[in-house]
């Protein structure tokens, strides 16, 4: 049922295949029953004025990814203009340079894929980051990369399109590669690259939902992001 062809410039505004799954007997299930696999249509809520609205369905999730990639790309662009980068080791310069290019490529890809549905450019706020400090830059990079992985891992289940799910999968593993490298720069040759703070006893990496991710990101984003139409 989730086999829709992906059309880069013409992502369908809203798809209603979930209507297929609508059930007539939900009342018996009682309040509080979360139907993760057999979803009813989500409530349609009007976007708030001001800021950006991510939209609904797969478009909304792509915009969510686009917002995070905007944040990451802007961060690394600023890193490369700061004095930490100017004085960094050759290895760290290579890593920061690579991450800047990867995140910029991700951002531009999502923008192109979303076409007219893309949200506007976000206004970022990195005033809490000291771009002359290695500790501050690497700490922020760790936050962004770990957050990105948890966000993609949490959002995958809401994508209707298998093609988009695969693309998200292609990106999330690169974010995880970044996260492990940054963590190893902070604490070399330790187990922190895949630490117990983000991986549980079953060997599963944490997932975060839309609200958790956007709340964490809000420290660095001035633009108000309305995610109320996202599925889930």
């Amino acid at each position: 049922m989730k086999k829709e062809l992906f059309k880069p410039e013409g992502l369908i505004q809203h798809t209603d295949r979930r209507a297929f799954l609508k059930m007539g007997t939900l009342s018996v299930a009682g309040a509080g029953l979360l139907l993760m696999g057999c979803k009813d249509d989500e409530d349609v809520m009007p976007p708030v004025s001001g800021g950006v609205s991510l939209g609904s369905g797969d478009v909304g999730i792509l915009n969510y990814a686009y917002a995070l990639e905007q944040l990451e790309a802007a961060f690394y662009a600023q890193v490369m203009m700061g004095s930490y980068f100017a004085n960094a080791s050759a290895e760290e310069k290579t890593i920061m340079g690579d991450l800047e290019k990867h995140e910029r490529a991700h951002r531009e890809f999502f923008k192109a894929a979303l076409g007219a549905n893309a949200i506007a450019d976000l206004e970022v706020d990195f005033s809490s980051i000291d771009f002359s400090s290695r500790n501050s830059v690497l700490g922020a990079a760790k936050t962004f990369e770990d957050l990105g992985v948890a966000a993609y891992n949490g959002a995958g289940q809401f994508l209707e399109s298998g093609d988009l799910l695969l693309i998200a999968g292609k990106i999330v593993s690169v974010e995880a590669r970044h996260a492990a490298a940054i963590r190893d720069l902070i604490n070399p040759n330790s187990a922190d690259f895949a630490g117990d703070d983000i991986i549980d006893a079953n060997g599963l990496e944490r997932t975060l939902n839309f609200q958790e991710v956007l709340t964490a990101a809000s420290t660095y984003v001035k633009t108000e992001i309305d995610f109320s139409q996202l599925p889930g």
Partner: peptide, 15 residues
């Protein structure tokens, strides 16, 4: 979601 959560752990190992 479980598969994705294993997938990113393998990517961390690989890196």
């Amino acid at each position: 979601t479980a598969a994705l959560s294993i997938h990113s752990v393998e990517a961390r190992h690989a890196s």
